[in-house]
Design a protein around this nucleic acid. Structure first.
Length: 565
DNA sequence: CTGGGGACGGGGCCC
DNA sequence: CGGGCCCCGTCCCCA
Protein backbone atom coordinates (compact mmCIF):
# COMPACT_ATOMS: atom_id res chain seq x y z
CA UNK A 1 0.00 0.00 0.00
CA UNK A 2 2.78 2.32 0.99
CA UNK A 3 4.66 1.30 -2.16
CA UNK A 4 1.77 2.23 -4.37
CA UNK A 5 1.51 5.52 -2.61
CA UNK A 6 5.19 6.24 -3.24
CA UNK A 7 4.89 5.26 -6.87
CA UNK A 8 1.94 7.58 -7.28
CA UNK A 9 3.84 10.38 -5.67
CA UNK A 10 6.84 9.83 -7.91
CA UNK A 11 4.61 9.72 -10.97
CA UNK A 12 3.00 12.97 -9.97
CA UNK A 13 6.37 14.61 -9.53
CA UNK A 14 7.52 13.32 -12.89
CA UNK A 15 4.34 14.48 -14.49
CA UNK A 16 4.68 17.94 -13.04
CA UNK A 17 8.26 18.07 -14.15
CA UNK A 18 7.25 17.06 -17.63
CA UNK A 19 4.53 19.65 -17.77
CA UNK A 20 6.92 22.28 -16.55
CA UNK A 21 9.42 21.28 -19.18
CA UNK A 22 6.82 21.39 -21.89
CA UNK A 23 5.62 24.78 -20.75
CA UNK A 24 9.14 26.08 -20.74
CA UNK A 25 9.71 24.89 -24.26
CA UNK A 26 6.45 26.37 -25.41
CA UNK A 27 7.20 29.65 -23.71
CA UNK A 28 10.60 29.84 -25.28
CA UNK A 29 9.25 29.08 -28.69
CA UNK A 30 6.46 31.53 -28.17
CA UNK A 31 8.91 34.21 -27.14
CA UNK A 32 10.95 33.59 -30.22
CA UNK A 33 7.85 33.56 -32.29
CA UNK A 34 6.67 36.82 -30.81
CA UNK A 35 10.03 38.36 -31.39
CA UNK A 36 9.97 37.28 -34.98
CA UNK A 37 6.43 38.54 -35.32
CA UNK A 38 7.28 41.90 -33.91
CA UNK A 39 10.25 42.21 -36.20
CA UNK A 40 8.13 41.28 -39.15
CA UNK A 41 5.51 43.75 -38.18
CA UNK A 42 8.10 46.40 -37.77
CA UNK A 43 9.50 45.69 -41.18
CA UNK A 44 6.01 45.64 -42.57
CA UNK A 45 5.29 49.07 -41.14
CA UNK A 46 8.50 50.43 -42.47
CA UNK A 47 7.81 49.08 -45.93
CA UNK A 48 4.29 50.37 -45.82
CA UNK A 49 5.49 53.79 -44.86
CA UNK A 50 7.98 53.79 -47.67
CA UNK A 51 5.28 52.69 -50.05
CA UNK A 52 3.04 55.50 -48.94
CA UNK A 53 5.78 58.00 -49.39
CA UNK A 54 6.48 56.71 -52.83
CA UNK A 55 2.83 56.82 -53.73
CA UNK A 56 2.54 60.31 -52.42
CA UNK A 57 5.53 61.45 -54.38
CA UNK A 58 4.17 59.93 -57.52
CA UNK A 59 0.83 61.53 -56.95
CA UNK A 60 2.35 64.85 -56.15
CA UNK A 61 4.67 64.89 -59.10
CA UNK A 62 2.00 63.85 -61.50
CA UNK A 63 -0.52 66.27 -60.15
CA UNK A 64 1.92 69.09 -60.02
CA UNK A 65 3.02 68.43 -63.52
CA UNK A 66 -0.52 68.32 -64.76
CA UNK A 67 -1.71 71.23 -62.74
CA UNK A 68 1.31 73.24 -63.66
CA UNK A 69 0.24 72.80 -67.21
CA UNK A 70 -3.16 73.98 -66.24
CA UNK A 71 -1.71 76.95 -64.46
CA UNK A 72 0.09 77.88 -67.58
CA UNK A 73 -3.23 77.80 -69.27
CA UNK A 74 -4.50 80.13 -66.56
CA UNK A 75 -6.83 77.79 -64.81
CA UNK A 76 -7.88 79.38 -61.55
CA UNK A 77 -9.25 76.23 -60.03
CA UNK A 78 -6.10 74.41 -60.91
CA UNK A 79 -4.18 76.92 -58.96
CA UNK A 80 -6.30 76.22 -55.98
CA UNK A 81 -5.70 72.55 -56.27
CA UNK A 82 -2.02 73.15 -56.65
CA UNK A 83 -1.90 75.28 -53.58
CA UNK A 84 -3.73 72.72 -51.63
CA UNK A 85 -1.66 69.99 -53.03
CA UNK A 86 1.50 71.72 -52.06
CA UNK A 87 0.18 71.87 -48.58
CA UNK A 88 -0.25 68.18 -48.58
CA UNK A 89 3.09 67.59 -50.16
CA UNK A 90 4.84 69.67 -47.57
CA UNK A 91 3.40 67.53 -44.90
CA UNK A 92 4.11 64.29 -46.58
CA UNK A 93 7.08 63.55 -44.44
CA UNK A 94 4.82 63.49 -41.46
CA UNK A 95 1.86 61.91 -42.97
CA UNK A 96 2.81 58.37 -42.37
CA UNK A 97 1.59 58.52 -38.87
CA UNK A 98 -1.99 57.99 -38.10
CA UNK A 99 -2.44 61.22 -36.32
CA UNK A 100 -1.40 64.70 -37.07
CA UNK A 101 -2.39 68.23 -36.47
CA UNK A 102 -1.94 71.20 -38.66
CA UNK A 103 -1.54 74.42 -36.85
CA UNK A 104 -1.75 77.64 -38.67
CA UNK A 105 0.46 80.42 -37.47
CA UNK A 106 -1.39 83.09 -35.67
CA UNK A 107 -1.93 86.40 -37.25
CA UNK A 108 -2.46 85.05 -40.69
CA UNK A 109 -5.72 84.68 -42.36
CA UNK A 110 -4.72 82.08 -44.76
CA UNK A 111 -2.28 79.39 -45.47
CA UNK A 112 0.62 80.64 -47.42
CA UNK A 113 3.19 78.83 -49.37
CA UNK A 114 6.00 80.39 -47.44
CA UNK A 115 4.53 79.62 -44.10
CA UNK A 116 5.74 76.60 -42.24
CA UNK A 117 3.10 74.17 -41.32
CA UNK A 118 3.70 72.73 -37.94
CA UNK A 119 2.68 69.18 -37.70
CA UNK A 120 2.15 67.38 -34.51
CA UNK A 121 2.36 63.77 -35.27
CA UNK A 122 0.91 61.43 -32.79
CA UNK A 123 0.91 57.73 -32.57
CA UNK A 124 -2.76 57.04 -32.66
CA UNK A 125 -4.13 54.71 -35.21
CA UNK A 126 -7.74 55.55 -34.85
CA UNK A 127 -9.95 54.93 -37.80
CA UNK A 128 -11.83 58.12 -37.30
CA UNK A 129 -10.34 61.54 -37.11
CA UNK A 130 -12.09 64.79 -36.65
CA UNK A 131 -10.62 67.92 -38.08
CA UNK A 132 -11.91 71.00 -36.38
CA UNK A 133 -11.16 74.29 -37.96
CA UNK A 134 -11.69 77.16 -35.69
CA UNK A 135 -11.50 80.71 -36.70
CA UNK A 136 -12.04 83.68 -34.61
CA UNK A 137 -15.28 85.52 -34.66
CA UNK A 138 -16.00 88.29 -37.02
CA UNK A 139 -14.65 90.96 -34.76
CA UNK A 140 -11.37 89.20 -34.26
CA UNK A 141 -11.12 88.54 -37.94
CA UNK A 142 -11.71 92.13 -38.69
CA UNK A 143 -9.01 93.27 -36.35
CA UNK A 144 -6.47 91.00 -37.79
CA UNK A 145 -6.37 88.74 -34.79
CA UNK A 146 -7.85 85.82 -36.51
CA UNK A 147 -6.44 82.51 -35.63
CA UNK A 148 -7.09 79.19 -37.09
CA UNK A 149 -6.41 75.87 -35.56
CA UNK A 150 -6.97 72.85 -37.64
CA UNK A 151 -6.96 69.81 -35.51
CA UNK A 152 -7.37 66.20 -36.06
CA UNK A 153 -8.53 64.44 -33.00
CA UNK A 154 -7.98 60.81 -32.41
CA UNK A 155 -11.01 58.98 -31.27
CA UNK A 156 -11.05 58.49 -27.59
CA UNK A 157 -8.31 60.94 -27.02
CA UNK A 158 -8.81 63.86 -24.78
CA UNK A 159 -9.27 66.87 -26.99
CA UNK A 160 -7.58 69.01 -24.42
CA UNK A 161 -4.45 67.02 -24.94
CA UNK A 162 -4.54 67.80 -28.57
CA UNK A 163 -5.10 71.42 -27.94
CA UNK A 164 -2.28 71.54 -25.50
CA UNK A 165 0.00 69.76 -27.84
CA UNK A 166 -1.04 71.91 -30.71
CA UNK A 167 -0.49 75.02 -28.72
CA UNK A 168 2.74 74.10 -27.05
CA UNK A 169 4.45 71.90 -29.52
CA UNK A 170 4.78 74.27 -32.38
CA UNK A 171 6.00 77.70 -33.05
CA UNK A 172 4.79 80.34 -33.54
CA UNK A 173 2.37 80.16 -30.64
CA UNK A 174 -1.17 79.47 -31.48
CA UNK A 175 -4.14 80.80 -29.72
CA UNK A 176 -6.35 77.86 -29.15
CA UNK A 177 -9.94 78.10 -28.28
CA UNK A 178 -12.08 76.07 -26.05
CA UNK A 179 -14.32 74.17 -28.33
CA UNK A 180 -17.18 74.12 -25.92
CA UNK A 181 -16.99 77.23 -23.85
CA UNK A 182 -17.09 80.14 -26.20
CA UNK A 183 -20.55 81.48 -26.82
CA UNK A 184 -19.28 84.00 -29.29
CA UNK A 185 -20.27 83.75 -32.86
CA UNK A 186 -17.62 81.98 -34.74
CA UNK A 187 -16.96 79.79 -37.60
CA UNK A 188 -16.58 76.15 -37.01
CA UNK A 189 -16.09 73.47 -39.50
CA UNK A 190 -15.52 69.92 -38.68
CA UNK A 191 -14.68 67.24 -41.10
CA UNK A 192 -15.02 63.61 -40.33
CA UNK A 193 -13.01 61.18 -42.29
CA UNK A 194 -13.88 57.58 -42.16
CA UNK A 195 -10.36 56.53 -42.70
CA UNK A 196 -7.57 58.19 -40.92
CA UNK A 197 -4.60 56.90 -42.80
CA UNK A 198 -2.84 58.78 -45.45
CA UNK A 199 -4.20 56.67 -48.20
CA UNK A 200 -7.57 57.89 -47.17
CA UNK A 201 -6.46 61.38 -47.94
CA UNK A 202 -4.74 60.70 -51.15
CA UNK A 203 -5.76 57.62 -52.94
CA UNK A 204 -3.46 56.55 -55.65
CA UNK A 205 -4.46 54.04 -58.21
CA UNK A 206 -2.61 52.69 -61.15
CA UNK A 207 -3.28 55.53 -63.46
CA UNK A 208 -5.81 57.68 -61.79
CA UNK A 209 -5.58 60.02 -58.90
CA UNK A 210 -8.65 61.55 -57.57
CA UNK A 211 -8.54 64.63 -55.55
CA UNK A 212 -11.72 65.87 -54.13
CA UNK A 213 -11.57 69.42 -53.16
CA UNK A 214 -14.25 70.85 -51.06
CA UNK A 215 -14.26 74.30 -52.32
CA UNK A 216 -16.70 76.54 -50.71
CA UNK A 217 -18.73 78.88 -52.71
CA UNK A 218 -16.81 81.99 -53.27
CA UNK A 219 -18.01 85.42 -53.73
CA UNK A 220 -15.58 87.49 -55.57
CA UNK A 221 -16.74 90.97 -54.99
CA UNK A 222 -15.99 94.32 -56.31
CA UNK A 223 -16.53 95.73 -59.70
CA UNK A 224 -12.85 96.10 -60.21
CA UNK A 225 -12.32 92.43 -59.57
CA UNK A 226 -12.48 90.85 -62.86
CA UNK A 227 -14.29 87.63 -63.20
CA UNK A 228 -11.88 86.67 -65.82
CA UNK A 229 -10.72 83.24 -64.74
CA UNK A 230 -7.28 83.96 -66.00
CA UNK A 231 -6.83 86.92 -63.79
CA UNK A 232 -8.43 85.23 -60.86
CA UNK A 233 -6.28 82.22 -61.30
CA UNK A 234 -3.07 84.16 -61.50
CA UNK A 235 -3.91 86.24 -58.54
CA UNK A 236 -4.81 83.26 -56.51
CA UNK A 237 -1.47 81.73 -57.17
CA UNK A 238 -0.01 83.60 -54.29
CA UNK A 239 -3.25 83.82 -52.53
CA UNK A 240 -4.08 80.73 -50.58
CA UNK A 241 -7.54 80.21 -49.22
CA UNK A 242 -8.65 82.57 -46.61
CA UNK A 243 -10.32 81.28 -43.50
CA UNK A 244 -13.58 82.13 -45.04
CA UNK A 245 -12.91 79.49 -47.60
CA UNK A 246 -12.13 75.89 -47.44
CA UNK A 247 -9.73 73.93 -49.46
CA UNK A 248 -9.97 70.50 -48.09
CA UNK A 249 -8.90 67.24 -49.49
CA UNK A 250 -10.83 64.11 -49.07
CA UNK A 251 -9.76 60.70 -50.01
CA UNK A 252 -13.14 59.16 -50.22
CA UNK A 253 -15.82 61.49 -51.34
CA UNK A 254 -18.47 58.91 -50.82
CA UNK A 255 -17.87 58.62 -47.15
CA UNK A 256 -16.98 62.10 -46.19
CA UNK A 257 -19.17 64.15 -44.03
CA UNK A 258 -18.86 67.84 -43.85
CA UNK A 259 -20.57 69.90 -41.27
CA UNK A 260 -20.16 73.55 -41.00
CA UNK A 261 -21.92 76.10 -38.93
CA UNK A 262 -21.52 79.71 -39.50
CA UNK A 263 -22.84 82.09 -37.04
CA UNK A 264 -21.42 85.13 -38.57
CA UNK A 265 -20.58 86.26 -41.96
CA UNK A 266 -17.34 88.01 -42.49
CA UNK A 267 -15.26 89.44 -45.19
CA UNK A 268 -11.71 88.40 -45.35
CA UNK A 269 -8.76 89.66 -47.15
CA UNK A 270 -5.77 87.57 -47.80
CA UNK A 271 -2.46 89.14 -47.37
CA UNK A 272 -2.10 92.44 -49.04
CA UNK A 273 -3.60 91.46 -52.24
CA UNK A 274 -6.97 93.05 -52.54
CA UNK A 275 -7.81 90.83 -55.39
CA UNK A 276 -8.03 88.01 -52.94
CA UNK A 277 -10.82 89.60 -51.05
CA UNK A 278 -13.69 87.29 -50.60
CA UNK A 279 -16.80 87.49 -48.64
CA UNK A 280 -18.74 84.61 -47.36
CA UNK A 281 -22.09 84.08 -48.85
CA UNK A 282 -23.99 84.21 -45.61
CA UNK A 283 -25.09 87.23 -43.82
CA UNK A 284 -26.34 86.68 -40.31
CA UNK A 285 -29.26 88.90 -40.89
CA UNK A 286 -30.31 87.67 -44.21
CA UNK A 287 -29.07 84.17 -44.19
CA UNK A 288 -30.07 82.16 -41.17
CA UNK A 289 -28.85 79.08 -42.88
CA UNK A 290 -26.23 76.60 -41.99
CA UNK A 291 -24.07 74.72 -44.34
CA UNK A 292 -26.44 71.84 -44.14
CA UNK A 293 -28.67 73.94 -46.27
CA UNK A 294 -25.82 75.33 -48.14
CA UNK A 295 -24.54 72.02 -49.28
CA UNK A 296 -27.89 71.02 -50.55
CA UNK A 297 -29.02 74.13 -52.16
CA UNK A 298 -32.16 74.07 -54.05
CA UNK A 299 -32.83 76.85 -56.40
CA UNK A 300 -34.69 78.66 -53.71
CA UNK A 301 -31.81 78.38 -51.32
CA UNK A 302 -29.52 79.58 -53.93
CA UNK A 303 -31.69 82.56 -54.51
CA UNK A 304 -31.68 83.26 -50.84
CA UNK A 305 -28.01 82.89 -50.76
CA UNK A 306 -27.39 85.32 -53.50
CA UNK A 307 -30.02 87.72 -52.37
CA UNK A 308 -28.10 88.47 -49.25
CA UNK A 309 -25.20 89.55 -51.32
CA UNK A 310 -27.15 92.02 -53.28
CA UNK A 311 -29.19 93.23 -50.39
CA UNK A 312 -26.04 93.84 -48.43
CA UNK A 313 -24.82 96.09 -51.09
CA UNK A 314 -21.69 94.05 -51.43
CA UNK A 315 -22.13 94.05 -55.13
CA UNK A 316 -22.87 96.97 -57.20
CA UNK A 317 -24.51 96.71 -60.50
CA UNK A 318 -21.35 95.45 -62.00
CA UNK A 319 -20.69 93.10 -59.14
CA UNK A 320 -20.28 89.53 -59.84
CA UNK A 321 -20.80 86.27 -58.15
CA UNK A 322 -18.53 83.41 -58.74
CA UNK A 323 -19.76 80.19 -57.39
CA UNK A 324 -17.71 77.11 -57.33
CA UNK A 325 -18.93 74.34 -55.21
CA UNK A 326 -17.60 70.95 -54.47
CA UNK A 327 -15.28 69.99 -57.23
CA UNK A 328 -13.76 66.68 -58.00
CA UNK A 329 -10.57 66.86 -59.98
CA UNK A 330 -9.70 63.79 -61.87
CA UNK A 331 -6.19 63.57 -63.14
CA UNK A 332 -5.96 60.75 -65.56
CA UNK A 333 -2.45 60.42 -66.74
CA UNK A 334 -1.66 63.40 -68.88
CA UNK A 335 -5.19 63.86 -69.98
CA UNK A 336 -6.75 67.25 -69.48
CA UNK A 337 -8.40 67.95 -66.24
CA UNK A 338 -12.06 67.41 -66.07
CA UNK A 339 -14.07 69.19 -63.47
CA UNK A 340 -17.06 67.47 -62.11
CA UNK A 341 -19.22 69.24 -59.65
CA UNK A 342 -21.32 67.06 -57.49
CA UNK A 343 -24.71 67.95 -58.76
CA UNK A 344 -26.42 66.38 -55.85
CA UNK A 345 -25.27 69.34 -53.86
CA UNK A 346 -26.09 71.90 -56.39
CA UNK A 347 -29.02 73.91 -57.30
CA UNK A 348 -29.89 74.92 -60.74
CA UNK A 349 -27.61 77.87 -60.71
CA UNK A 350 -24.73 75.79 -59.57
CA UNK A 351 -25.25 73.30 -62.28
CA UNK A 352 -24.63 76.12 -64.61
CA UNK A 353 -21.30 76.56 -63.01
CA UNK A 354 -20.48 72.97 -63.51
CA UNK A 355 -21.44 73.33 -67.12
CA UNK A 356 -19.38 76.45 -67.22
CA UNK A 357 -16.33 74.60 -66.06
CA UNK A 358 -16.88 71.63 -68.26
CA UNK A 359 -17.63 73.73 -71.23
CA UNK A 360 -14.73 76.07 -70.77
CA UNK A 361 -12.49 73.11 -70.28
CA UNK A 362 -13.68 71.54 -73.45
CA UNK A 363 -13.25 74.77 -75.30
CA UNK A 364 -9.64 75.04 -74.46
CA UNK A 365 -8.72 71.44 -74.85
CA UNK A 366 -10.66 70.48 -77.90
CA UNK A 367 -9.54 72.33 -80.99
CA UNK A 368 -12.64 71.24 -82.82
CA UNK A 369 -14.88 72.75 -80.28
CA UNK A 370 -12.76 75.80 -80.18
CA UNK A 371 -13.17 76.27 -83.86
CA UNK A 372 -16.91 76.36 -83.61
CA UNK A 373 -17.31 77.51 -80.09
CA UNK A 374 -19.56 80.46 -79.46
CA UNK A 375 -16.98 81.69 -77.06
CA UNK A 376 -14.49 82.31 -79.76
CA UNK A 377 -17.14 83.32 -82.15
CA UNK A 378 -18.22 85.93 -79.71
CA UNK A 379 -14.71 87.05 -79.10
CA UNK A 380 -14.31 87.56 -82.77
CA UNK A 381 -17.38 89.60 -83.11
CA UNK A 382 -16.69 93.20 -82.58
CA UNK A 383 -20.18 94.12 -81.76
CA UNK A 384 -20.67 91.68 -78.98
CA UNK A 385 -17.18 91.74 -77.72
CA UNK A 386 -17.44 95.45 -77.44
CA UNK A 387 -20.66 95.33 -75.56
CA UNK A 388 -19.66 92.52 -73.27
CA UNK A 389 -15.96 92.63 -73.50
CA UNK A 390 -13.33 91.88 -70.91
CA UNK A 391 -13.46 95.40 -69.65
CA UNK A 392 -16.88 94.70 -68.34
CA UNK A 393 -16.73 92.11 -65.66
CA UNK A 394 -20.42 91.88 -65.35
CA UNK A 395 -20.78 91.39 -68.99
CA UNK A 396 -18.08 88.82 -68.89
CA UNK A 397 -19.77 86.68 -66.33
CA UNK A 398 -22.97 86.96 -68.25
CA UNK A 399 -20.99 86.13 -71.27
CA UNK A 400 -19.74 82.92 -69.76
CA UNK A 401 -23.02 81.95 -68.26
CA UNK A 402 -24.77 82.51 -71.49
CA UNK A 403 -22.41 80.18 -73.15
CA UNK A 404 -23.34 77.50 -70.73
CA UNK A 405 -27.05 77.78 -70.68
CA UNK A 406 -28.90 74.72 -71.67
CA UNK A 407 -30.06 75.86 -75.03
CA UNK A 408 -26.82 77.28 -76.20
CA UNK A 409 -26.20 74.58 -78.70
CA UNK A 410 -29.41 75.00 -80.53
CA UNK A 411 -29.26 78.73 -80.62
CA UNK A 412 -25.66 79.52 -81.01
CA UNK A 413 -23.95 76.55 -82.46
CA UNK A 414 -26.82 75.98 -84.76
CA UNK A 415 -26.41 79.47 -86.03
CA UNK A 416 -30.07 79.84 -86.77
CA UNK A 417 -30.99 83.47 -86.95
CA UNK A 418 -34.52 83.80 -85.81
CA UNK A 419 -35.11 87.44 -85.35
CA UNK A 420 -31.75 88.86 -86.22
CA UNK A 421 -30.54 92.31 -85.63
CA UNK A 422 -31.50 95.39 -87.46
CA UNK A 423 -30.00 98.81 -87.73
CA UNK A 424 -32.07 100.10 -84.83
CA UNK A 425 -31.38 96.99 -82.79
CA UNK A 426 -27.76 96.20 -83.40
CA UNK A 427 -27.09 94.43 -80.10
CA UNK A 428 -27.79 90.77 -80.33
CA UNK A 429 -28.42 88.15 -77.73
CA UNK A 430 -26.23 85.28 -78.70
CA UNK A 431 -28.68 82.79 -77.35
CA UNK A 432 -31.92 83.70 -79.02
CA UNK A 433 -30.47 86.10 -81.55
CA UNK A 434 -32.83 88.81 -80.52
CA UNK A 435 -31.87 92.33 -81.32
CA UNK A 436 -31.82 95.17 -78.83
CA UNK A 437 -31.22 98.83 -79.12
CA UNK A 438 -28.61 99.10 -76.42
CA UNK A 439 -26.25 97.04 -74.35
CA UNK A 440 -28.23 97.39 -71.15
CA UNK A 441 -31.25 95.82 -72.72
CA UNK A 442 -29.15 92.91 -73.86
CA UNK A 443 -27.91 92.39 -70.35
CA UNK A 444 -31.38 92.59 -68.88
CA UNK A 445 -32.70 90.25 -71.46
CA UNK A 446 -29.93 87.75 -70.89
CA UNK A 447 -30.96 87.40 -67.31
CA UNK A 448 -33.67 85.21 -68.74
CA UNK A 449 -30.98 82.83 -69.90
CA UNK A 450 -28.52 83.22 -67.10
CA UNK A 451 -30.86 83.34 -64.16
CA UNK A 452 -29.13 86.41 -62.83
CA UNK A 453 -31.49 88.27 -60.53
CA UNK A 454 -29.78 91.33 -59.18
CA UNK A 455 -32.74 92.81 -57.36
CA UNK A 456 -33.55 91.22 -54.05
CA UNK A 457 -36.30 91.97 -51.60
CA UNK A 458 -35.21 93.16 -48.20
CA UNK A 459 -38.27 91.67 -46.55
CA UNK A 460 -37.94 88.23 -47.93
CA UNK A 461 -35.46 86.47 -50.16
CA UNK A 462 -37.25 86.83 -53.41
CA UNK A 463 -35.09 88.02 -56.23
CA UNK A 464 -35.98 89.58 -59.52
CA UNK A 465 -34.42 90.36 -62.79
CA UNK A 466 -35.80 93.87 -62.93
CA UNK A 467 -36.15 96.63 -60.43
CA UNK A 468 -39.73 97.23 -61.39
CA UNK A 469 -40.68 93.70 -60.57
CA UNK A 470 -39.07 94.04 -57.20
CA UNK A 471 -41.05 97.18 -56.61
CA UNK A 472 -44.22 95.40 -57.56
CA UNK A 473 -43.38 92.50 -55.33
CA UNK A 474 -42.78 94.71 -52.33
CA UNK A 475 -46.43 95.62 -52.32
CA UNK A 476 -46.93 92.16 -50.92
CA UNK A 477 -45.15 93.29 -47.78
CA UNK A 478 -46.47 96.81 -47.64
CA UNK A 479 -50.02 95.84 -48.40
CA UNK A 480 -50.23 98.63 -50.88
CA UNK A 481 -52.95 98.11 -53.46
CA UNK A 482 -52.98 101.19 -55.60
CA UNK A 483 -55.33 99.81 -58.24
CA UNK A 484 -58.91 100.14 -57.07
CA UNK A 485 -62.03 99.11 -58.89
CA UNK A 486 -64.43 101.89 -59.78
CA UNK A 487 -67.37 99.51 -59.62
CA UNK A 488 -66.71 98.05 -56.20
CA UNK A 489 -64.35 98.46 -53.30
CA UNK A 490 -61.88 95.93 -54.47
CA UNK A 491 -58.26 97.01 -54.63
CA UNK A 492 -55.37 95.24 -56.23
CA UNK A 493 -51.64 95.36 -56.11
CA UNK A 494 -51.27 94.84 -59.81
CA UNK A 495 -52.96 96.69 -62.57
CA UNK A 496 -53.50 93.53 -64.50
CA UNK A 497 -55.40 92.06 -61.64
CA UNK A 498 -57.72 95.02 -61.60
CA UNK A 499 -58.31 94.68 -65.28
CA UNK A 500 -58.99 91.03 -64.89
CA UNK A 501 -61.32 91.70 -62.01
CA UNK A 502 -63.34 94.22 -63.94
CA UNK A 503 -64.55 91.48 -66.22
CA UNK A 504 -66.70 90.48 -63.31
CA UNK A 505 -68.59 93.71 -63.75
CA UNK A 506 -68.52 93.85 -67.51
CA UNK A 507 -69.42 90.22 -67.93
CA UNK A 508 -66.74 89.82 -70.49
CA UNK A 509 -65.60 86.25 -70.92
CA UNK A 510 -62.95 86.28 -73.56
CA UNK A 511 -61.87 82.69 -73.05
CA UNK A 512 -64.20 80.24 -74.70
CA UNK A 513 -63.95 76.50 -74.74
CA UNK A 514 -63.53 75.04 -78.21
CA UNK A 515 -65.23 71.84 -77.10
CA UNK A 516 -68.37 73.31 -75.62
CA UNK A 517 -69.96 76.67 -75.16
CA UNK A 518 -68.44 77.43 -71.87
CA UNK A 519 -66.78 80.80 -71.58
CA UNK A 520 -64.47 82.09 -68.92
CA UNK A 521 -63.14 85.34 -67.63
CA UNK A 522 -59.71 83.91 -67.01
CA UNK A 523 -57.49 81.81 -69.16
CA UNK A 524 -56.51 79.65 -66.27
CA UNK A 525 -60.05 78.73 -65.61
CA UNK A 526 -60.50 77.74 -69.20
CA UNK A 527 -57.45 75.63 -68.97
CA UNK A 528 -58.84 73.91 -65.95
CA UNK A 529 -62.08 73.45 -67.72
CA UNK A 530 -60.43 71.83 -70.69
CA UNK A 531 -59.56 68.94 -68.48
CA UNK A 532 -63.20 68.13 -68.46
CA UNK A 533 -62.93 67.31 -72.12
CA UNK A 534 -60.09 64.90 -71.73
CA UNK A 535 -60.43 61.19 -71.53
CA UNK A 536 -60.51 61.46 -67.82
CA UNK A 537 -64.11 62.60 -68.10
CA UNK A 538 -65.78 59.95 -70.17
CA UNK A 539 -69.36 60.87 -69.32
CA UNK A 540 -70.60 63.69 -71.53
CA UNK A 541 -73.90 65.49 -71.37
CA UNK A 542 -75.86 65.02 -74.57
CA UNK A 543 -77.38 68.45 -74.21
CA UNK A 544 -74.45 70.74 -73.55
CA UNK A 545 -71.52 68.46 -74.10
CA UNK A 546 -70.25 68.82 -70.60
CA UNK A 547 -68.36 65.82 -69.41
CA UNK A 548 -68.05 64.17 -66.07
CA UNK A 549 -65.75 61.68 -64.56
CA UNK A 550 -68.60 59.76 -62.92
CA UNK A 551 -71.92 58.71 -64.32
CA UNK A 552 -73.63 59.88 -61.17
CA UNK A 553 -72.26 63.35 -61.72
CA UNK A 554 -73.69 63.37 -65.22
CA UNK A 555 -77.08 62.26 -63.97
CA UNK A 556 -77.12 64.99 -61.36
CA UNK A 557 -76.09 67.52 -63.97
CA UNK A 558 -78.79 66.43 -66.43
CA UNK A 559 -81.38 66.38 -63.71
CA UNK A 560 -80.60 69.87 -62.58
CA UNK A 561 -79.69 71.55 -65.84
CA UNK A 562 -81.82 69.77 -68.35
CA UNK A 563 -84.45 68.05 -66.15
CA UNK A 564 -83.76 64.70 -67.76
CA UNK A 565 -82.31 61.41 -66.64
C1' DC B 1 -66.93 64.28 -50.18
C1' DT B 2 -65.84 65.49 -54.75
C1' DG B 3 -65.87 68.02 -59.02
C1' DG B 4 -66.23 72.30 -61.29
C1' DG B 5 -66.27 77.22 -61.82
C1' DG B 6 -65.19 82.00 -60.17
C1' DA B 7 -61.89 84.89 -58.44
C1' DC B 8 -57.54 86.52 -56.57
C1' DG B 9 -52.31 86.59 -55.52
C1' DG B 10 -47.83 86.32 -57.17
C1' DG B 11 -44.30 85.99 -60.50
C1' DG B 12 -42.28 85.63 -65.44
C1' DC B 13 -41.72 87.66 -69.66
C1' DC B 14 -42.15 91.01 -73.27
C1' DC B 15 -42.95 95.59 -75.02
C1' DC C 1 -39.70 102.38 -65.44
C1' DG C 2 -44.15 101.02 -66.10
C1' DG C 3 -47.78 98.55 -68.57
C1' DG C 4 -49.62 94.49 -70.32
C1' DC C 5 -50.27 89.75 -70.76
C1' DC C 6 -49.69 85.23 -69.34
C1' DC C 7 -49.14 81.30 -66.25
C1' DC C 8 -49.59 78.91 -62.02
C1' DG C 9 -51.33 78.14 -57.58
C1' DT C 10 -54.78 78.71 -54.32
C1' DC C 11 -59.09 79.72 -52.04
C1' DC C 12 -63.95 79.88 -51.98
C1' DC C 13 -68.44 78.59 -53.26
C1' DC C 14 -71.79 75.70 -55.27
C1' DA C 15 -73.73 71.53 -57.16
Amino acid sequence: MVFHTQIASIMEVLANAAVAEICKVVDDDYAVFRLEMSQSQKENRTLRRKLQLLELKVVRERAERTIRDRVRASRPCSVKILDQYRGMARAEGHLAGGHMSFVKPVGHHAWRDDQPIAIDEGSGTSTQHVIVIESADAEAAGSGGSSLVKQERTEGEDPRDIQTRAAAGVAPPVATEDLTASPQPRTRRSITEVSGMLDAVLKSETDTETLTVMHRRLLHTGSDHRSDPEILGLRRLGCPPAPGLEYLLYGNPNTRTVHSHRDSGYALETGNDPSCSYTTEMDPGNMPLGLETQTDLSRGDWNRYSSSVYSEGCLDKKGEVIVVDEVTVKVEGDAPLTWNVDETHLGEGLSQDRALLDYRESLETNPNIETHSPLHALRDRDLVSTSMGPSDSHGRILFDQVLNSKDQGAQVLGGGATSGGSKDKPFLCMLCNKGFSCLQKVEIHQRVHTGVKPFSCTQCHMRFTEAGKLKRHQRVHTGEKPFSCTQCQMCFAQAGHLKRHQRVHTGEKPYSCPQCHMRFTQAGNLKMHLKVHTGERPFACTHCGKRFSERSYLRIHQLKKHSTL
